[in-house]
């Protein structure tokens, strides 16, 4: 069977070239096997597959959180997976945004402060501009009244929207979402999906969303399926 390929289109933002990830010293376990993938600007890609198939591992490789055992990850056409820890961290900070199943907000910081964290770490904007942008993001996600609330004072859906706002803080090229609606009710899930769709259609960002929910995946522009670490579609 021929290896699945990605359709041609606008400029590639992230590329995986024959990426394999194995773990374990003695008996090696293959998480991701020989995968090629191109994520282009303005694409909403859903990654599906059964539990333990390697979907999340693939996402972490795309996001430079993990390094492949073999193969290469390119960000904007440049090899990135062999960069040192600090350089990969800088690429994550400036070009990529993560949304996880759990919101992972820092519990001692308000929604506003949580959103400002990546901006402050990157240091591109001054304090006033960072604050303004964080408030705009909150407003765009319908959370303008929750800016000074701690994560513990918000609902699950609100927290996840704050997490999305944080992922968008540095205007990343690609949002990498790992089961972003896994802990949300139907209404909140719909809100998150609507935000993602808006980001892709209106801002030209790319979204790669890992999900085991095929109905959600059907809402993406295209789907790729992973089984036993291999891309099958």
């Amino acid at each position: 069977m021929a290896a699945p390929t990605d359709p041609p289109g606008p400029r590639p933002l992230i590329e995986l070239r024959r990426v394999t990830k194995t773990i374990g010293d003695g008996v090696a376990t293959t998480l991701v096997a020989d995968i090629d993938l191109v994520v282009r600007s303005g694409e909403f890609v859903a990654v599906t597959g059964p539990s333990g198939s390697g979907k999340s591992s693939l996402l972490y490789l795309l996001g430079l959180l993990d390094v492949p055992t073999s193969g290469e990850v390119l960000v904007e056409g440049r090899p990135a997976s062999r960069l040192d820890e600090a350089a990969r961290a800088h690429l994550r900070l400036s070009l990529l945004g993560f949304v996880f199943q759990f919101h992972f907000l820092l519990p001692e910081f308000s929604a506003l402060s949580n959103i400002m964290l990546p901006m402050r770490a990157l240091g591109r904007l001054d304090d006033a501009a960072m604050r303004r942008r964080a408030l705009e993001l909150l407003a765009s996600l319908g959370l303008e009244d929750h800016a000074h609330k701690l994560p513990g004072q918000m609902s699950g859906g609100q927290r996840q929207r704050v997490a999305i706002a944080r992922a968008l803080a540095n205007e990343p090229l690609v949002i990498l979402a790992d089961e972003p609606t896994g802990n949300l009710d139907t209404h909140a899930s719909e809100q998150v999906l609507a935000i993602f769709r808006h980001l892709v259609d209106e801002t030209g960002r790319a979204i790669v969303m890992v999900t085991h929910d095929l109905d959600l995946a059907a809402r993406a522009d295209r789907q790729i399926r992973i089984v036993d670490g291999r891309r099958v579609t």
Binding site: E85, A86, A89, R92, L93, F104, L117, P118, A121, R166
Partner: peptide, 8 residues
């Protein structure tokens, strides 16, 4: 913090 891009 590290996933956001904070260095070691």
């Amino acid at each position: 913090l590290k996933s956001l891009g904070f260095t070691e």
